[in-house]
Nucleic acid binder design. Structure first.
Lengths: 335, 335
DNA sequence: CTGTTAGCGCGTTCAA
DNA sequence: TTGAACGCGCTAACAG
């Protein structure tokens, strides 16, 4: 635009002071029993009319500067283009909007350097708080975040060394459901496909798997940026060993391995029974459909958002924050 | 945090003036042939050391206020949790980062009111520009956006009434590829599944379909928020009519209808051949895999970002913007 | 050559 | 209902 209209323009046009325009725009005149500032309704109407006519938008920069609040939060996820995180992003966007906030999103790609860059760039934008999915090696970034004093909530994973505000699902319980189900279907040699990342979600699932299966538990580890050849190797090995059931620790490697098995003519759900963590719309195309562990993402994101906004409120009122706690939701096996 | 450190703190601690800290932080001392301001390297080092020690982050609010630039763009898509838009979001995030920008994302859910709310809330946050996917009924919002004078680029769809900066794919050409392919496979009665939305992407595909098929072209229209029953109805009708090929206009209805056909025992790719617009990882689980129209999203997003940042640059230099143009990329049928 | 002073940008809010 | 200070960083103008 040539130049945007400021509060000054409105004041001049309405023939009142800048302060009065500010009061009117912020409804400082009616709400709040105190009614510290009363404005005659004719003046108020005139101001509102002018503001509307000029399409006045207060500069958030100036407002921010004054009140020190940006009404923006930062969300750092693993990868926005993964449906799992896409849904989380979507829900968080809604939750934030309900609280009057907008969201700065970033994807770490499970790379601690990217994670750190995003963190710093968001802090520079003065976000009031964070919701983060910390990746492997993000320890020093988290310490930086803690030192920054900004409120934040960790989701999907927890940090082994710190007691932080965290919201996630009970992965051990979910794994138990998966194994129980496969055994009830007659599976004898169950193996697991997981990511080769040291993050608590994978770790908890693997630990639970090992506890249940005992000494002969076998887990395939795939890199985060997996190539077809990685999945092929697993498929070949599974066929060679005659494994009769697989638990997939996440939807991306799940689909990748399933594709390779399918391509090799394996009759999925007959020769090999499968249960996967997280939804993919590919699961419906098997007979019977592939059961999957459904995390209650709406609840998780709502709890995380509520938690964060409580922390932000306390923080901005100078109150000391509530003790960090871990909120855990159960997942369900959808058959 | 108790309170964040400002440039003042650094200046006091380093025993210099605020201005000098500002110069040093902005490297106004070395670059730029003019070298208007020289600072002794010892002073500079001291300032930098103090800044680092205190972990000084300039307040972006103050900087914004002063230079009138936020280095933030707004991106309004249809639905972040749809893989197609998830990928676009991901690419735009990267592109923006390369240009030193961060991104405010929002999902319209194809609801013009949400679209409008997002637009206004982003403008209030002072984004420097937009990349938008306008939904049906967003006309008045677009007019508002145009009047706001902020640079923007439309992607994925074009607006029939305005000549706007736009980047998208050649949908008619893609449809021709799809029909040609199905005919080459011997299909005789081809029908199309589309969304019941008046948006150019669907419109162009449908128009091309009708042009090719002639009078007997039949198109099923599904609502954006489709329920299983919507897809069921299509599946039943297709079976009843003995349709032998379907072109799916988008990945979501595609998967929904495929699921219903699968459930009814239809041998997909044998009884009914299918080609779909946009990728889904479910397509690999058919034999042969379902061919799909792959839009060159990396190119589209890169072109859109480059376009937008050119506009923003011109805008902030007070130059008049280049004439609006439509950039079109061809899609490919992946078999 | 090195560094400082002072005003600005825009909306908020206290004192009058 | 208003004047004026304020928040923080940028930068033109100026001084030693």
């Amino acid at each position: 635009m040539a130049k945007s209209i400021t509060i000054k323009d409105i004041a001049r046009e309405a023939g009142v002071s800048i302060a009065l325009v500010s009061f009117v725009m912020n409804n400082r005149t009616e709400a709040n029993g105190k009614q510290k500032y009363r404005v005659s309704s004719t003046t108020r109407d005139r101001i509102l009319e002018v503001a509307r006519r000029y399409n006045y938008q207060p500069s958030s920069a100036a407002r921010m500067l004054r009140q020190g609040r940006t009404r923006v939060i930062g969300v750092i996820l693993s990868d926005l283009s993964n449906i799992f995180y896409g849904i989380i992003a979507r829900e968080l966007e809604n939750q934030a909007a309900l609280h009057g906030y907008t969201v700065l999103f970033g994807s770490s790609d499970e790379d601690p350097r990217k994670f750190d860059l995003l963190l710093r760039s968001f802090i520079e934008k003065d976000v009031e708080g964070f919701i983060v999915v910390p990746c492997e090696g993000s320890r020093s970034s988290l310490e930086y975040l803690i030192r920054s004093g900004r409120p934040f909530v960790v989701i999907d994973r927890y940090h082994p060394d710190y007691r932080l505000p965290t919201v996630l699902t009970d992965n051990a319980d979910a794994m138990r459901q998966a194994v129980d189900y496969l055994r009830s279907q007659g599976a004898r040699s169950i193996e697991m496909v997981s990511y080769a990342m040291r993050i608590s979600s994978m770790g908890d699932r693997e630990t639970a798997f090992r506890e249940i299966l005992g000494a002969d538990a076998h887990i395939y580890h795939l890199p985060f940026n997996l190539k077809a050849s990685d999945a092929s190797a697993v498929a070949d090995e599974v066929i060679r060993k005659g494994t009769d059931a697989l638990i997939m620790s996440s939807n991306v490697p799940s689909v990748a391995v399933l594709q390779q098995l399918f391509r090799r003519g394996v009759r999925i759900q007959k020769d090999i029974k499968v249960v996967s963590f997280d939804y993919s719309n590919a699961y419906a195309f098997f007979d019977p459909p592939i059961p999957y562990i459904l995390q209650p993402l709406p609840q998780i994101t709502e709890a995380a958002a509520a938690y964060l906004f409580r922390l932000i409120e306390a923080h901005s009122n100078g109150e000391s924050p509530e003790a960090a706690k871990k909120i855990v939701f159960k997942s369900k096996l959808i058959v």
